[in-house]
Computed example of a mutant assay.
Amino acid sequence: MTLAVLGGSFNPVHNGHLSLARTVHSLLGYERVFLIPAASPPHKALSSGATPEQRLEMLRLAVAGEAWLEVDDCEIQRGGTSWTIETLRELTLRYSSSLEGKIGLVIGRDLASGFSQWREADLIPHFADIILAGRPGGDQNSAPEFPHRLLANDLVDASSSDIRSRIREKASWESLVPEAVYRYILDNALYQNS
């Protein structure tokens, strides 16, 4: 099995996340892609408005019907700060009998400049092939000094922070998330006061 992982707060998951996962699956040929929500991201504060369980449920709704796309809750189960190196170690051990090659670690190109500050950054390439994806508004021309592969992905103009802001301001946002996620957010009155 070839496996790629895409982490984040997914607060909420949106169409940009799903488009990126589909590109990793179709263009790079990874048999499975895991979306892994962080318990507590190390480099930014997690915005309020949804519990970890609600973020997980939105992810599960978003991936329904996609056999190759899965949600893994290892970081939420582990709790505390979500360190990428710990997740890579856990997944490598868990799938040691079936994993073909290294895990593909998908990160935004905008995060590449700070990669050396990540916990045990020098060990991450031992566990993962790093895949740099473009993000709207991000630096698309950086040349990181670590082994990586550039992904030619579509830049979907959607962000979780923008969606939360639109919900608070009662602006249009339904086209930015899957229908099931839209209904879930409405039904649970998420992000209205965050």
Rank of each mutant, 00 (worst) to 15 (best):
M1L: 11
M1A: 12
M1Y: 08
T2S: 15
T2P: 08
T2V: 07
L3T: 10
A4I: 10
A4Y: 06
V5S: 05
G7W: 00
S9R: 09
P12F: 00
P12W: 00
H17Y: 05
S19I: 04
L20K: 07
V24Q: 00
S26W: 07
L27A: 14
L27P: 08
L28N: 12
L28H: 11
F34M: 05
F34R: 02
F34D: 00
F34G: 01
P37S: 03
P42V: 05
K44R: 13
K44L: 01
S47Q: 12
T51D: 03
P52C: 03
R55V: 00
R55K: 13
L56C: 14
L56H: 06
L56K: 13
E57G: 10
M58F: 09
L59P: 03
L61Q: 06
A62R: 03
A62Y: 03
A62W: 01
V63I: 10
V63S: 03
A64L: 12
G65Y: 08
G65N: 07
E66I: 08
A67V: 14
A67D: 15
W68D: 02
E75L: 05
E75A: 08
I76K: 05
I76D: 01
R78D: 00
G79D: 06
G80E: 03
T81H: 07
W83H: 12
E86F: 14
E86Y: 13
T87C: 09
L88Y: 09
L88D: 01
L88S: 04
R89F: 02
L91C: 06
L91T: 04
S97T: 15
S98P: 04
E100H: 12
E100F: 09
G101S: 13
L105F: 15
A112C: 14
A112D: 06
F115N: 01
W118L: 06
R119K: 14
E120T: 12
E120Q: 10
A121E: 03
I124V: 11
I130D: 02
L132Q: 05
A133W: 01
A133E: 02
R135W: 02
R135K: 10
P136C: 10
G137V: 09
G138A: 14
D139A: 14
Q140I: 12
N141H: 10
N141V: 11
A143W: 08
A143R: 15
P144L: 03
P144V: 03
P144T: 04
E145T: 11
P147E: 01
H148K: 12
H148G: 04
L150F: 13
L151C: 14
L151Q: 09
L155A: 07
L155K: 12
L155N: 06
D157V: 13
D157W: 13
D157G: 09
S159R: 10
S160A: 13
S161A: 10
S161K: 14
I163H: 02
S165F: 02
I167L: 01
R168L: 07
R168P: 09
A171R: 15
V177P: 05
P178G: 00
P178F: 01
E179L: 15
A180Q: 06
V181F: 04
Y184C: 02
Y184L: 00
I185W: 02
I185H: 06
I185E: 00
D187V: 11
N188R: 15
A189D: 11
A189F: 08
Q192Y: 04
S194H: 15
